Simulated assay, not measured.
Amino acid sequence: MGTPVGVVGDDGLADVLRDAGVAVERGRDGAVPNTDRVVAVGEDAVAAVARAEGDPLVLPVAAGRGVRSVPRDDAVAAVSGLAEARVESHPVLRVTMPDGTVEQAFWDVTLVTADAARISEFTVASTADRIGQFRADGVVIATAAGSPGYAHRVGGPILAPSEQAVVAPIAPFATDPDHWVLPADGLSALVERDEATVKLLVDDHISRPVSYQERITISLGSPVRTAVVDESRSRFE
Rank of each mutant, 00 (worst) to 15 (best):
P4Y: 08
G6E: 05
G9C: 05
D11K: 00
D11V: 02
G12V: 12
L17N: 04
R18F: 01
V22D: 01
E25S: 01
R26D: 02
R28F: 05
D29F: 09
A31H: 10
V32L: 08
P33A: 06
P33V: 09
T35K: 02
D36Q: 13
D36F: 13
E43A: 15
D44Q: 11
A45H: 12
V49T: 13
V49P: 09
R51I: 05
L57I: 11
V58G: 01
V58A: 01
A62P: 00
A62I: 04
R65E: 08
V67R: 06
V70P: 01
V70F: 01
R72G: 00
D73R: 06
D74R: 07
A75G: 04
A75H: 01
V79E: 00
G81T: 01
A83Q: 07
E84T: 10
V87G: 00
H90R: 15
P91G: 08
V92G: 06
R94P: 00
T96E: 09
D99R: 12
G100M: 07
G100S: 08
Q104R: 11
A105L: 10
F106H: 05
V112C: 06
A114V: 08
D115E: 11
A117G: 03
S120N: 12
E121G: 05
E121M: 05
D129A: 08
R130H: 05
G132S: 07
G132F: 00
Q133P: 03
R135T: 15
R135L: 10
A136K: 03
G138L: 05
V139N: 03
V139D: 02
A142E: 06
T143M: 12
T143Y: 13
A145I: 03
G146W: 06
A151T: 12
H152K: 15
P157V: 13
P157H: 11
I158F: 04
A160G: 13
A160Q: 13
P161R: 14
P161V: 10
V166E: 12
A168I: 07
I170F: 04
A171G: 04
P172S: 14
D176A: 14
W180S: 04
L182A: 07
A184Y: 00
D185H: 05
A189V: 10
E192I: 07
R193W: 10
R193S: 11
V198K: 03
V198N: 06
K199G: 15
K199W: 10
L200P: 09
V202D: 04
V202R: 08
D203T: 06
I206F: 13
S207D: 12
R208D: 13
V210H: 01
I216C: 05
I216M: 05
T217Y: 02
S219L: 10
S219H: 06
S219D: 15
L220D: 09
L220S: 09
G221F: 04
S222I: 03
P223R: 15
P223K: 13
T226F: 02
V228I: 15
S232I: 11
F236V: 11
